[in-house]
Design a protein around this nucleic acid. Sequence first.
DNA 1: TGGTTATTCGCAATCTGTGCAGATTGTGGC
DNA 2: GCCACAATCTGCACAGATTGCGAATAACCA
Lengths: 145, 145
Amino acid sequence: MQSPEELTTAFRARGLKVTPQRQLIFRLLAGNDRHPSADVLFATASAAMPGISLRTIYQTLTDLTSMGELRALDVGAGATRFDPNIDDHHHVICDHCGDVRDVYVSGVESLRLLSDADAEAHGIFEIDRTQVVFRGTCSPCRSTR
Amino acid sequence: MQSPEELTTAFRARGLKVTPQRQLIFRLLAGNDRHPSADVLFATASAAMPGISLRTIYQTLTDLTSMGELRALDVGAGATRFDPNIDDHHHVICDHCGDVRDVYVSGVESLRLLSDADAEAHGIFEIDRTQVVFRGTCSPCRSTR
DNA sequence: TGGTTATTCGCAATCTGTGCAGATTGTGGC
DNA sequence: GCCACAATCTGCACAGATTGCGAATAACCA
Ligand SMILES: [Mn+2]
Ligand SMILES: [Mn+2]
Ligand SMILES: [Zn+2]
Ligand SMILES: [Zn+2]
């Protein structure tokens, strides 16, 4: 995601307005590596700006996502998580607490599809992106077991 | 997933009963590589057994999943998809229609985490499983664009 | 400054999935 | 084959996440 300042420019360029609510959300997301859900952002935003609506949070997250500034992540834990890091990276997810961590991975280019049916699938599909997800248990969750 | 016959035995062995509803669901899942959602299964099941409840579909899917006969897949398209293929395999997903195809991939063992923060994350997390998801557009969806 | 147009916000509605309880049915033992 | 009993089925209420809608409001450009 670009900086709050750059986003301000980008929004205006698109005919979108830069409201205090949006600026706050930009700031909350900038450099955030926690992969927050809309709900978590709403809680944080509400502390800084009481009265801000959850609807506005969703609205802005959707806008940023469709602008390509944000990536939506479905980790299979109820709510969608949002990722301002749009670098080519991957994730480690704790199946117990839902913690999501960034990881940079080598060897992704070397992945190869096997067998005929796969080759066919490969030909039939136009692949845009490869996501690697490592699932497991984080240290804190391992302690309390 | 085991065959419907084997599942019958497995269920009885666990003190679970084998009802016509469950048998139907076993049959609908056996060899099914479409990764159906509960909803889709409900529609198909309803055709064969009018009156069957969506609740029963969910119930049986949950049972099969916790028995390890089925894998639940979150593809970020609303509903959970269920996979009777419990081999070590991966998926190609069409971002437009939600089509999910099985692919067998080589090179997964060679994936390596880079950088310090990642190495730390790797040490902190106990990784159980690595999922690779190829995202893109299937041929039919490409035509209609 | 004013007018136009996007945005905000609250609320209803949708969608997916789960909790509950009464009526029903599969099963193992006789 | 019949019984007793536990497991199941179903309908319905409910919860959580997200979206649709519209009236009131606020941003932006001339
Ligand atoms: Mn990330
Ligand atoms: Mn599969
Ligand atoms: Zn954890
Ligand atoms: Zn498609």
